[in-house]
Amino acid sequence: MATVQNPSTTPLRQGVQPLRAGQGTSFLWRKLHSLLGIIPIGAFFIEHLLSNFEALKGPAAYGAQVKFLNALPLVRVLEWTFIFLPILYHGLYGMYIWIRGKSNVVYYPWAGNWMYAAQRWTGLIAILYIGQHVWRQRFAGVSLPENPGAAFAKVQHELASPIMLAVYVIAMIAICWHFSYGIWLFAAKWGITPGTIARRRFGYACGALGFVLLIMGLASIWAFISPKYRNAPENVTPVVAYLHSTAPPYAAIAG
């Protein structure tokens, strides 16, 4: 009788398949997703918050900041390469990651597992928010690149609606969370903080950063709804401003 040639165990017909050692490209796409979250998206996020912070100085300063940004060389190219496309990729691939994971925080309600789930939900909030934000603030309505002076009023109108205000506040919280935990995850998953103690310390640092960013973000929102700049002018730098008016824009209108 011949020795049986069949495999010794019934082959796995279902269930998780073994590692495809060294094969496929998912490593690259996943690492790209991870990296983009920090640079440029994270960097841009910080820049955006800093810019928004100018709103606390009033519509003119805010308008000037918007103008400055829009005056950068190759600004449209920069905008697409370093902001829109990375965010689009990070968001869509993030959703892809989400649907492939099976969250089980119900059974294992451990801190890291909650964070895992939170990172996905905050990511979802972020991408939905960013979608409407970019559409309504960048592409719809008054074109800010051409009318940077209209920036303050445009945002102020938006935040006049309590619903939109709530959306902005929630999104600000979610994005600050997503970003600061994202930095922490990046450090852990890229081997920058392998040890438990290092991770815990860096966790405090990320938490502090997230908190500062959140305060800055909420303060900027406050600038738009505070009584101080109520009913800001529709455009602090009217077309005449293009004619190299020497007077301060705000003064010009006031005058």
Partner: peptide
Amino acid sequence: LRTMELRSFSA
């Protein structure tokens, strides 16, 4: 022990 199949193997 899974399929309860009985077999002989030569050696």
